[in-house]
Design a protein around this nucleic acid. Structure first.
Length: 638
RNA sequence: GCCAGCGUAGCUCAGACGGCAGAGCAACUGAUUUGUAAUCAGUGGGUCGGGGGUUCGAUUCCCUUCGCUGGCUCCA
C-alpha cells in the first residue's frame, strides 16, 4: 500500500492510499468538471495518458482538455494513428512511416506501390469512421528496442525499424488500438471514440525524412477538432482565405499577370500593379533618405570573376544565371552587395565617414527550383529594398538596433503580425568560427537591448553570416520571410575594405546586409491577401472614380476629374452611358476607395457626393472639400 | 528537381464510347439617358496549353514538353 499526495491547482491536496493510482483515478478524486472532455493530463509538468500509473508519491496534476491547444495536438496525433490503421486495412502491403500533429492539422506518410490520390480519401475517411465508432482503446506498452525492432521487422515495417535504430534508446513505447500498433511517444486520447470531428484534406508527395535522395513517400493530410462546429469553421476559413489568394485576385484587379511564353517565376506588371509598386518604392526611398541612407545603383550583370572573389560562385552558383559577352563570363546578380562594396572601396574612408548606408531598389535573378515557385511569393526575378551598412565594429550594435526600429515602424504602418528569428551558421558557409560567434552575438545583443522576443533557427543563416529574420503571417496562416538583417564579416575582408581610424591606422569595417519589405513582389502578394485587394487609400492604385448619372452631367464631372488630377489624386472617369448601379458595381468590384457620384443634384450645387467602398455615402460637398478629405487620409496612410 | 492534381472563348465553368465544341459574364453593334452592386436586343469569338504517336478519325487514349496548384522532417 502506497500513499499518494496529489495536488491540483485551486483545490485542496488529496491523500490517496492505494496499491496503484492511475492518472484518471487521481483526477476523479478532485471531481473536476467535464472529465469526458479530458484527453490526457500533465503530471509534474509532463504529458501522460489518463491510463498511466502515477509513480511519484507527490504529484502535481493538471487535466488537458480536448479543446485546449495541447488537447487538440494530442487529438490530431491520435487521429493520425486512426488514419494509419484505416490505410493499412484498406491497402494491404502499405508501409507506415511517421505521422505527427502539426499546426492545425496532422499528416501521415506512407510507402505504397502507388501514390495515394485525392479520390482515395473518401474511402479512408469511411474506414476511419468505423474505427471511431468501434471506440477502440489506445493502450501503451514499453518494450526494449530489440523487441520493438523484431516486432516491426516481422511486419516488414522497415521505416519503423530505422526510426528505432536511430533513436538509440534502450526502451521505446508502442501504442495499440485494435489490431494496429505504432511506435509512438504519446500521449494519446483514451480511445478512438473520443474523436469528435475530423476531415482528410489533401495528399502530397514527401521524401522520407525530407531528404530528396531517399524514397518519395505518399503523405495524407487531415485535421481534427474538438467539435463538428469548429471543424466546419476551420474549413470555412480556409475557403475564405482562398478567395483572398493573390494569384487569383492580382490579375482580376489588373495588377499583374504571368505568361507561359515569358517563363515561370516572371511577373508582368500592369498599370495598376506598376502604380502600386511605384507607391511602395517612393515610400521606401523617402523613409530611407530620412534615416541617413544614400541611394545607389549597380548593374544587373557583373563579371563571373567578381562573383568568384565574393564567394558567391562557390556557394551560390546553382541559384545563379550566367551569360557570356565577348568571351567573358558574366553572372546575373542574385544579390546587390558587390557594386556596393566597390562604391565603398572607390576611395579612402575615414572613421568619421562611417557608418555608410547604401540603399538600392535592386532587381535580382535567382534560379529557384521549379516546384517552389508560387505566385508573387516565390519568383525568379524580383526587386529588393536592399541596403548595406558599413560601419566600425563598435557601431554595429547601434546600427542593428536602428534597423530593428525601422522594421517595427514600417510593419506598424501595415499593421502586420510578425515573428522574429535569429538564424545561425549553416553547414555550407565561409568565415572563421570566431567571426560567426561575434556576429551572432551582435544580433542577439541588439534583440536583447530592444527587449524583443525571438526564436533561434539553428543552421538557417546565410552562407556569409548569421541573420535576424522577420516572418509575416499571411491570411492563410503561412509565414513569409520579409525583412532580414544579416551580419557579414567576410565580404569586407574579401574586398579588403578599410577605414582610417582615430589612430591613423587602417581598420576593417563590418557590414550589415538588410532589407525591410524584402522583395517588393512578395510584399505586394502579402498586401493583396492582407487587405483582400481593398488597399487603404494611400496605397490604392486608383483612389477615386468619377461616375456620372446621365450625359447631362459630363461637363461638371470633367471639371471635378480635372481638379482631382491637378491635386495629384489617382482618379479615373466613368462617363459611360450606363445605369449608375452598373457603374457602382464595377467600381465596387475593382475595390476603389471612393466613388464620386455626379448627377443633376451635384451639378446644381457645384459638388460631388462621395460613396465610400463600404457602401456609405458622405454628404454632398464641393470638389475642394473632397480633396482636403482624401489628402488627409493619404497623409495619415489610411 | 521530385510526387500528385489541373490546363476547353478574355473570365467562371459545362461537355463527349474516340465522330461538326456549349452556357453565363465580358467584348463589339444598336436601342436606352438612367440616382447607389448587373437595362434590353443583336453580332463576332476556340488549332480544347504546345509537339509527337495510336486510329479511317484525337479536345477525348498513349508519350513528351510548357505552365499552374498543393506538398517535399514544425522529428516515433
Amino acid at each position: 500500500m502506497k500513499t499518494f499526495s496529489i495536488h491540483l491547482k485551486g483545490k485542496p491536496p488529496v491523500q490517496v492510499q492505494a496499491e496503484s493510482l492511475s492518472v484518471r483515478e487521481a483526477l476523479e478524486r478532485f471531481e473536476v468538471g467535464g472529465l469526458d472532455r479530458v484527453v490526457a493530463a500533465k503530471v509534474n509538468g509532463e504529458q501522460r495518458d489518463l491510463s498511466a500509473e502515477i509513480a511519484e508519491e507527490e504529484a502535481e496534476i493538471k487535466p488537458v482538455y480536448i479543446q485546449s491547444e495541447e488537447g487538440l495536438h494530442i487529438l490530431r496525433h491520435s487521429t493520425s494513428h486512426v488514419m494509419a490503421m484505416a490505410v493499412k486495412e484498406l491497402f494491404p502491403g502499405v508501409k507506415v512511416t511517421i505521422g505527427p500533429a502539426i499546426e492545425n492539422a496532422f499528416y501521415y506518410d506512407f510507402d505504397y506501390e502507388r501514390p495515394f490520390r485525392e479520390d482515395d480519401l473518401p474511402a479512408i475517411e469511411e474506414k476511419m469512421k468505423e474505427i471511431v465508432n468501434a471506440d477502440l482503446p489506445f493502450s501503451r506498452k514499453e518494450i526494449t528496442s530489440q523487441e520493438a525492432i523484431r516486432f516491426f521487422r516481422d511486419q516488414g515495417e522497415d521505416y519503423k525499424v530505422e526510426l528505432i535504430q536511430d533513436l538509440g534508446a534502450d526502451r521505446v513505447s508502442l501504442y495499440t488500438q485494435g489490431g494496429f500498433t505504432d511506435l509512438c511517444r504519446g500521449p494519446h486520447i483514451p480511445s478512438t471514440g473520443m474523436i469528435p470531428a475530423f476531415h482528410l484534406t489533401h495528399v502530397a508527395g514527401a521524401y522520407w525524412r525530407g531528404d530528396e535522395k531517399r524514397p518519395m513517400l505518399s503523405r495524407i493530410y487531415g485535421t481534427a477538432f474538438a467539435d463538428q462546429k469548429s471543424l466546419k469553421k476551420y474549413l470555412y476559413r480556409l475557403e475564405e482565405a482562398k478567395k483572398r489568394n493573390h494569384v487569383k485576385l492580382g490579375p482580376r484587379l489588373e495588377l499583374f499577370s504571368t505568361h507561359e511564353e515569358i517563363g515561370a517565376g516572371m511577373i508582368v506588371w500592369h498599370p495598376k500593379g506598376a502604380m502600386l509598386r511605384h507607391i511602395l518604392e517612393e515610400f521606401e526611398i523617402r523613409e530611407h533618405l530620412h534615416r541617413g541612407y544614400e541611394l545607389v545603383k549597380g548593374p544587373e550583370i557583373l563579371k563571373t570573376e567578381l562573383w568568384k572573389k565574393s564567394g558567391h560562385f562557390e556557394n551560390y552558383r546553382e541559384n545563379m544565371y550566367f551569360t557570356e559577352i565577348d568571351k567573358q563570363s558574366y553572372g546575373i546578380k542574385p544579390m546587390n552587395c558587390l557594386a556596393h562594396m566597390l562604391i565603398y572601396a572607390s576611395k579612402l574612408r575615414s572613421y568619421r565617414d562611417l557608418p555608410k548606408r547604401y540603399f538600392e531598389l535592386g532587381t535580382v535573378h535567382r534560379h529557384e527550383r521549379s516546384g517552389v515557385l508560387n505566385g508573387l511569393f516565390r519568383v525568379r526575378e524580383f526587386t529588393q529594398d536592399d541596403a548595406h551598412i558599413i560601419c566600425t565594429p563598435d557601431q554595429l550594435n547601434g546600427e542593428i538596433k536602428g534597423v530593428l526600429n525601422f522594421v517595427q515602424e514600417v510593419m506598424g504602418i501595415f499593421a502586420f503580425p510578425y515573428d522574429l528569428e535569429i538564424s545561425t551558421r549553416p553547414e555550407k558557409s565561409i568565415g572563421s568560427d570566431a567571426d560567426w560567434e561575434l556576429a551572432t552575438q551582435a544580433l542577439v545583443q541588439a534583440m536583447e537591448d530592444e527587449g524583443l522576443a525571438y526564436e533561434i533557427n539553428e543552421g538557417d543563416g546565410a552562407f556569409y553570416g548569421p541573420k535576424i529574420d522577420v516572418k509575416l503571417n499571411d491570411a492563410l496562416g503561412r509565414k513569409w520571410q520579409c525583412a532580414t538583417i544579416q551580419c557579414d564579416f567576410t565580404l569586407p575582408e574579401k574586398f579588403d575594405l578599410t577605414y582610417i581610424g582615430k589612430d591613423g591606422d587602417r581598420h576593417r569595417p563590418v557590414m550589415v546586409h538588410r532589407v525591410i519589405l524584402g522583395a517588393i513582389e512578395r510584399f505586394i502578394g502579402i498586401l493583396i491577401e492582407h487587405y483582400a485587394g481593398a488597399f487603404p487609400t494611400w496605397l490604392a492604385p486608383v483612389q477615386a472614380v468619377v461616375l456620372t448619372v446621365t450625359d447631362r452631367n459630363i461637363t461638371h464631372a470633367r471639371e471635378v476629374y480635372q481638379a482631382l488630377l491637378d491635386a495629384d489624386i489617382r482618379v479615373e472617369a466613368d462617363f459611360r452611358n450606363e445605369k449608375l448601379g452598373f457603374k457602382i458595381r464595377e467600381a465596387q468590384l475593382s475595390k476603389v476607395p471612393y466613388m464620386l457620384i455626379i448627377g443633376d443634384r451635384e451639378c446644381d450645387n457645384n459638388g460631388v457626393t462621395p460613396r465610400q467602398r463600404n457602401g456609405q455615402n458622405l454628404s454632398l460637398m464641393n470638389a475642394g472639400g473632397f480633396i482636403d478629405l482624401i489628402r488627409q487620409e493619404i497623409q495619415q496612410r489610411r
